[in-house]
Design a protein around this nucleic acid. Structure first.
Lengths: 134, 134
DNA sequence: TTTAAAATTGTAATCATTACAAATATGATT
DNA sequence: AATCATATTTGTAATGATTACAATTTTAAA
């Protein structure tokens, strides 16, 4: 599927800016920050504003087109791959790697030396799940 | 074990401030932010500075006495419970709950409605694990 | 006590992110 | 094609969590 249709599938109207940002995330599997995306895309599209990057990434996340990753305290990262996988960040170089989830009990950690594992779920707690949205 | 000895065990010299902050984390299992800790402790110890809170939480984390949680983009949270457990944040109320890890393949999600699961590991990648520390 | 090192403090700076209002683009309707 | 309403984009200014830094205070050894 092309990028335009991918956005439409997620109920996102495909503007030029949105396609450029989504394309960037599909082609750069480095879990970039908003600023990294801005710096790179700004070379190609000098009128693109950083606010648009932020707005767009928020919209993409809300519509399930990308993942927002809170891996470290420095800044938020974005992932165009929404399939089921885990992440590992190297404490020394800061790079974020994808890890393949083999089964509920097994994750392929490759040649990384794992020091710590965090599991974070998001959803609704008992109280909040019973409140009506509006 | 008392708080003082807990800190000593983690190679942390137990000053008054450090004991107060560690005590706070042991007694408040709400995954507080640095600011929440500051506001509460400042009532008891009006001379305590926010910088000390940050310095101390950083030291505690480096020495494995507390966990630093990057759960959402707003701010960092801290957990005095370093035992193996998972977290779940309610998207509506923002509260962070502890989840019990029953086995490698099973986490007790209680009555929460889980929407998304993230697994984040920290450690050293292949390149960096072969570099000597100094 | 003297003295050096460690810890704490307050203020100022940093920097990622957001708020906001103006400008532009889009798309339907006449 | 002109008009109009709505959505999108933009630039600037504000926000707010965290950190840098230098001064002060505490600690503990000599």
């Amino acid at each position: 599927m092309n990028t335009k249709d991918y956005l439409i599938t997620h109920n996102i109207k495909p503007s030029m800016q949105r396609i450029a940002i989504m394309d960037y995330l599909i082609n750069h599997k480095t879990h970039p920050t908003a600023d990294e995306i801005f710096v790179d895309l700004n070379k190609l599209y000098p009128t693109l504003s950083k606010t648009t990057i932020y707005n767009t990434l928020k919209l993409f996340t809300e519509n399930g087109a990308v993942l927002t990753l809170n891996i470290d305290e420095k800044n938020v990262r974005f992932d165009g791959d929404t399939s089921n996988h885990a992440h590992m960040q190297c404490t020394r170089c800061g790079k974020v790697y994808d890890l393949k989830i083999i089964s509920d009990a097994e994750i392929e950690v490759a040649n990384h030396e794992i020091v710590e594992t965090q599991i974070i779920m998001k959803g609704y707690c008992e109280k909040c799940r019973n409140i009506n949205n509006n």
